[in-house]
Design a protein around this nucleic acid. Structure first.
Length: 551
DNA sequence: GCTTTGTGCCAC
DNA sequence: AAACGTGGCACAAAGC
């Protein structure tokens, strides 16, 4: 049963209405989960199911399964122009005053009309349901839309609860590696000492700023260090005393700028890191994030992710998700068999296809990414003999992209068409240079579609896993000490998600049940996507008090 | 002065 | 200076 929420219901009575309505387990349909759910969560209301019209609209507009429908063929409308709503207020700015605005005599602009006022969610839901019904595979699309919307609920809940973050531990990590926090505008002691050492070894003046690429590159050349760039991999190939301190400087400088004290001030409040996850933010269907680099938390600071007292983390990740997904999509029995037993790469070696686990790994990754060089390309023929259906699937996806065609994930998410420069590049291939450029562009798009089908289907598996885990964790009920107010105060809940891994924050006494729930959810996700096809999705699960101790 | 671009590195 | 997919982010330099 659907219940559509419209703008006129955005008032003080909303939380009570939704709370009461939950008794009948409806599917709440709303324009954008982040415009409704954060407020409900703040009011202590969790919803069981939802339908995110904006996310569903995007999928249905681009799926090959609906391309013959009017829904996909009409000109872009207001639903196509929506930006994702943020899950929360913007962070506080470090080291500066917030813009005041009141006495800012700059250009006065009228507030933009709220695009949501013009939307008709009831009509949009009806149109979406009709498009699904007329699609080439309503069952798959219904599942995809349900999984995407469940993901939106999860993302809002992740932002609501936040990832436990110990600022004091983070500060200790920074102080140990960089020295005490310096005054504004000064380098930390360790970096300053390294800068001095780098200048000495290069015989460079005290004005040399190691953060300035052009001047550092010049100084390296004067000193006879023949590098064309400052990237690690190139510096590592050079034998010169400056390399070691320079690499150390770069590593620590990165830590400082990306996850240093400024990051801590900006993104950690009240012991929580609240990231904005953007569901469907990647064309493949993966999530992206904005603010704080939530999907790039470096291993160096994960020590600061510490469970609350009486609570612990259960961290789980899927072993070799993408090749398993590929085996299932292609019904490659030999590859599925290689995945039985936990380590698919070991299974590939056992099958006799390649000699070592490392070769199995780089070979499979190369097949899915479109690698053309090195060991990965060398073992590709062997992999193609051993796993013909799997390799054929990615090769066909690559050829489709090279033709400029659309490909689709297992559940029907369509790839974007090539950009407007596609025709221009192809048509302009007059001389040898232009021809080479056109071929390079074509192959590049082929690598994109090759990877799209696998990465996108892996993202669908992950959504199904998240949705199932979310329900199972809720069903575990309340236990142990309350750590906060709110609906998850005494409940195990998802606290972090990263493409193929999750971290659950749970009362200690439920840790074993959580681990079981995550494994059961993984098995359920496999069944929901691939039915009885015998492909396994084994998890590596660890119960840890700090995220740094997971795997 | 501001915005855009290039570089490099973090995650999967 | 990348090879081989998807991203975000900070900083300095270049562009306007």
């Amino acid at each position: 049963m659907n219940r559509v929420l419209v703008e006129s219901q955005r008032d003080a009575g909303l939380a009570a209405l939704v709370h009461a309505g939950e008794a009948e387990r409806p599917r709440w349909a709303w324009d954008d989960t982040n415009r409704w759910y954060p407020g409900l969560l703040d009011a202590g209301v969790r919803v069981d199911r939802a339908h995110d019209l904006r996310l569903a609209h995007t999928i249905l507009r681009r799926s090959p399964l609906t391309e013959h429908t009017g829904f996909a063929q009409v000109a872009p409308g207001p639903w196509d122009a929506l930006d994702p709503a943020p899950a929360g207020p913007p962070p506080t700015l470090p080291h500066e005053e917030r813009p005041v605005g009141l006495f800012d005599l700059g250009e006065v602009t009228a507030p933009a009309p709220d695009p949501h006022a013009a939307l008709d969610p009831e009509a949009e839901l009806a149109a979406q349901e009709e498009a699904v019904a007329r699609s080439g595979d309503p069952g798959r699309l219904r599942f995809l839309l349900a999984a995407e919307s469940a993901g939106a609920l999860v993302a809002a809940e992740l932002h609501h609860v936040g990832l436990p973050w110990r600022a004091d531990v983070h500060d200790a990590i920074l102080t140990q590696r960089l020295g005490p926090r310096p005054p504004l505008g000064r380098r930390p002691d360790t970096l300053e000492a390294l800068a001095v050492r780098i200048r000495e070894l290069l015989d460079a003046p005290p004005t040399l700023n190691p953060d300035s690429h052009p001047s550092l590159l010049k100084a390296l050349q004067y000193a006879g260090v023949g590098v064309k760039s400052l990237s690690q991999w190139e510096l590592m190939e050079v034998d010169h005393p400056v390399v070691e301190p320079l690499l150390e400087y770069k590593k620590l400088s990165r830590l400082l700028s990306a996850n240093g004290w400024n990051w801590l001030d900006t993104w950690v409040r009240d012991g929580r890191f609240r990231a904005e996850y953007v569901v469907g933010g990647v064309v493949t269907g993966r999530w992206s994030s904005v603010g704080g680099g939530a999907l790039q938390l470096p291993k160096a600071v994960r020590r600061a992710v510490v469970a609350d007292d009486g609570w612990t983390f259960v961290a789980a990740d899927v072993a070799q998700l993408e090749p398993r997904v590929l085996a299932a999509m292609s019904h490659d029995d030999a590859m599925a068999a290689a995945g039985r037993g936990g380590d698919m790469y070991a299974g590939i070696v056992a099958s006799g296809a390649v000699a070592t686990r490392e070769l199995a790994k780089v070979g499979m990754l190369g097949a899915m990414y479109g690698g053309t060089t090195g060991a990965s390309a060398q073992v590709l023929p062997s992999l193609a003999r051993a796993f013909p259906r799997a390799i054929a699937l990615v090769e066909e996806a690559a050829r489709a992209g090279e033709r400029g065609d659309v490909v689709a994930t297992w559940l029907g998410r369509g790839s974007p068409r090539p950009g407007s420069d596609w025709d221009r590049v192809q048509a302009g291939a007059y001389d040898a240079d232009d021809g080479a450029r056109a071929r390079s562009y074509t192959r590049s798009f082929g690598r994109f579609t090759r990877n799209f089908v696998v990465q996108g289907t892996a993202a669908e598996w992950a959504l199904a896993w998240l949705a199932s885990a979310r329900r199972r964790l809720w069903d575990l009920g309340e236990a142990g000490p309350a750590h906060r107010d709110g609906v998850f105060a005494r409940r195990p809940h998802l606290a972090f998600f990263l493409h193929d891994e999750v971290v659950v924050h749970t009362p200690k006494e439920l840790a074993d049940d959580v681990a079981h729930a995550l494994r059961a959810a993984a098995a359920e996700a496999g069944r929901l996507l691939f039915g009885a096809y015998p492909v396994e999705f084994p998890l590596t699960v660890a119960t840890v008090d700090s995220y740094a101790d997971a795997k």
